[in-house]
Design a protein around this nucleic acid. Structure first.
Ligand SMILES: [Zn+2]
Ligand SMILES: [Zn+2]
Ligand SMILES: [Zn+2]
Ligand SMILES: [Zn+2]
Lengths: 168, 168
DNA sequence: GATATAATGTTACATTATAACATAACATAT
DNA sequence: ATATGTTATGTTATAATGTAACATTATATC
C-alpha cells in the first residue's frame, strides 16, 4: 500500500501503511464522482486489493484474490478493471515486471519514477519533476513530442543494501 | 537498423541505414573476441536480423525470420540468443512493448533513453548522460543503489507530428 | 581420443494479455 | 413504469510472450 504524502520534491510516495487504504478508496470515489464515472464494486475491489498489497502485484494474482473473495472472475474481469484504474490514474503499471501498484497521489496527473528493489521487490513511487523535465528537454532536441515517460529504476533498496554489506 | 554515431550528448543513435549492418556485426565479432566469447552463427543471425529491422522487433518475429532462413528454431533458440546479445550489450530490450533493437554503440556500456513513436513505431536510442545522472541523484535521496534504469519515452516523432498537423 | 564445458535442439509448459460475443446493470426519455 | 440505448460484466476461447527440463551436438582442453 501507499501512504498519502506531502507533494514535495523529495518525498517518497510508497511507504506502506495499511491505515491509508480507506483514504485512497475515498479519493477514488470522489474522483470518479467528479468525472461522472462509475466506481463499481468490481473496480473498488480491484483497487483495494492493489492498495493492500505491500508490493506491486500481477494481474493473475489479483484474479486469484478476487476468486478467493467469492467473485466470479476471469482474466478480462481483472484486466478491464485495471484498464479503468490506469486510465483514471488510480494505479500504475510497471512494464519491467508486468505488475500494478496503487498511485500514491491520484488527485493530480503526474509523471512518476519507480524505484524497484531487485532483491526484495519493494517499490517506491517518487515524484521528481527533475527527471521528467530532463527527459522532455532531451526529447525536444530530437523533435519528439513526449506523451508519457516510463522510468523504472532497478537496484537495491536501503534495507537490502545493509543486508548485503552485513553478509560480506 | 542503427547508424554508428558520434558519441556526443545530443546525437541520435538510431538513424536507420542498412549500410551500417556490417559495421555492427564486425564490432560484435571483435567485441566477443576480446571477451573470449563465441559469436556463433545463430547469435550472428539473430543480431543481423535485429540490425536489419528498421524498428524494434519481437522475439517471435525473429523466430519466424530464422525459420524462413531455413533454420530449425523454437522459442528457446531465439530467447537464448537474445539473452546473450543483451548480456553483451549488443541489443537492448524495450519493456514497454516487448521488443528488441540493436544497440547503436555497443563498444562502451552505457545508459540509454529510448524515444518510441506511438504512431509509427520508430524508435531512437539516445545517450543522454543528463537523464541518467538525474535519476541517480534522485535515487540516492532514497538510499537506493541504482543498477539499471529503464527509460522509455512514448510520444510522436517529428514526421508523425507533421502528419497530424497536416490532417487538422 | 577422452573428458569437460558450452551451445543448440526439442518438447512441453508457464505467464501475461486480448478477441468476441452473450448477459446484466444502469441511465434516460418517453 | 416501460422502452431504449449505453456501459459494465460474464464467459469462452485464444493470442502473445517467455521458461523449464532434458537430450544432443559442437567446442575446447588435456
Ligand atoms: Zn502516481
Ligand atoms: Zn530491497
Ligand atoms: Zn545502446
Ligand atoms: Zn512516428
Amino acid at each position: 500500500m501507499t501512504e498519502h504524502c506531502p507533494h514535495s520534491e523529495t518525498a517518497s510516495c510508497t511507504l506502506p501503511s495499511s491505515e491509508q487504504v480507506k483514504v485512497l478508496l475515498d479519493q477514488a470515489v470522489s474522483l470518479c464522482e467528479q468525472r461522472n464515472l462509475r466506481f463499481t464494486e468490481l473496480r473498488k475491489q480491484v483497487l483495494e486489493l492493489v492498495c493492500r498489497a505491500d508490493q506491486p502485484v500481477g494481474a493473475y494474482q489479483l484474479l486469484d484474490e478476487l476468486r478467493e473473495q467469492g467473485r466470479s472472475a476471469a482474466p478480462p474481469t481483472v484486466y478491464r478493471a485495471l484498464d479503468f484504474l490506469l486510465e483514471q490514474g488510480l494505479v500504475h503499471r510497471l512494464a519491467t515486471n508486468n505488475t500494478y501498484l496503487a498511485c500514491a497521489h491520484p488527485q493530480k496527473p503526474h509523471a512518476a519514477v519507480f524505484l524497484v528493489c531487485s532483491q526484495c521487490g519493494q517499490t517506491q513511487e517518487v515524484h521528481t519533476r527533475g527527471v521528467i523535465e530532463v527527459v522532455k528537454q532531451q526529447a525536444e532536441k530530437f523533435d519528439f513530442r513526449v506523451t508519457h515517460a516510463s522510468v523504472e529504476v532497478a537496484g537495491l533498496c536501503h534495507s537490502c543494501q545493509s543486508q548485503k554489506e552485513g553478509a560480506q
